[in-house]
């Protein structure tokens, strides 16, 4: 028989054991969000493919045709889509998870389960979109007859996704916790995301900067590292491992800060929400 204690919150822990115990909920929350998202759309899950495609075409017209932005010697659409794939995991994941505690307030107020499941599943939902968007990616690669190294594909792509997820989860759980208490973050977030889109080398090459300070910030930026990794699969450019290491360190720090903040406040979500 399971025996457990209910008592005031004391020490900090990730609650990993409980997360494993409740693992099925990850699946159900993600499944629900994906289902609900596309339920009443005539095109359904096709949107997950169309959205990055439209964005790619749009940015190609603006940045490549009109502004002539350099794209590291590869066709701009390939360049843009490889950045956008990672960017979409990050931005959708961050928006989903930051709002997740508020949208699920009804459940939180009534039932106990490890709260971290909610922002985590919100990111998994963004990841499902990513899997569909990969189809566009492959199609573009074939269309432009872009040669890729298979070995790099199976190492760099998972690595860049992992880096993105860790970063998104850290920031997402941090914002989710704060959002319960201060709804201001709901309004700040869209600006923040828009700013980050242009602050990250999604649509331009990170090499465009010569200022040492900006290069340093780019190196420490985990999303920039993830995009760099994802792109080097076919640009053939050498990966700046120093940047990846710095980015990963920052990502892990963000993860700890996020989870710590979340776990510290989660017990009182039901009182606040």
């Amino acid at each position: 028989m399971t025996e457990y204690e209910i008592k005031p919150k004391s020490k900090f822990s990730f609650g990993l054991k409980e997360l494993i115990q409740y693992r099925e909920l990850f699946y159900f929350f993600t499944w629900r969000d994906v289902k609900v998202k596309y339920k009443q759309a005539a095109l359904g899950i096709l949107w997950a493919i169309l959205q990055p495609l439209v964005m790619m075409v749009m940015f190609t017209l603006i940045f490549s045709k009109a502004l002539n932005v350099s794209s590291d010697g590869i066709p701009y659409p390939v360049f843009a889509i490889s950045g956008l794939l990672i960017w979409n995991i990050f931005s959708n994941g961050l928006i989903n998870s930051a709002n997740s505690m508020v949208t699920n307030a009804n459940i939180i107020k009534k039932i106990y389960f490890p709260r971290l499941i909610i922002p985590m599943s919100a990111i998994l939902t963004a990841l499902v979109d990513f899997v569909f968007a990969l189809i566009v990616y492959v199609a573009i690669l074939i269309y432009y007859q872009q040669g890729i190294s298979i070995a790099k594909l199976f190492i760099y792509l998972p690595l860049s996704i992992l880096l993105t997820i860790v970063t998104t989860f850290g920031l997402g759980s941090f914002l989710a916790a704060l959002n319960v208490k201060f709804r201001d973050f709901q309004y700040v977030l869209p600006f923040f995301i828009q700013f980050l889109l242009f602050a990250n080398p999604v649509l331009y090459s990170a090499k465009a900067f010569s200022d040492p300070w900006i290069s340093f910030i780019m190196k420490a930026n985990p999303i920039a590292s993830a995009i760099q990794l994802c792109r080097s699969i076919f640009t053939g450019s050498v990966v700046d491992w120093q940047a990846v290491a710095m980015g990963s360190t920052v990502a892990v720090c963000l993860l700890f800060i996020g989870v710590f903040t979340f776990r510290k406040t989660e017990a009182y979500f039901a009182d606040l929400a």
């Binding site: 025996e3 204690e5 009534k110």
Partner: peptide, 16 residues
């Protein structure tokens, strides 16, 4: 009891 909100003091031991 249903662990939605924590107590300020004291504890509950549940065996189920």
């Amino acid at each position: 009891l249903s662990r939605i909100t924590p107590p300020t003091k004291g504890k509950i031991i549940c065996r189920g």
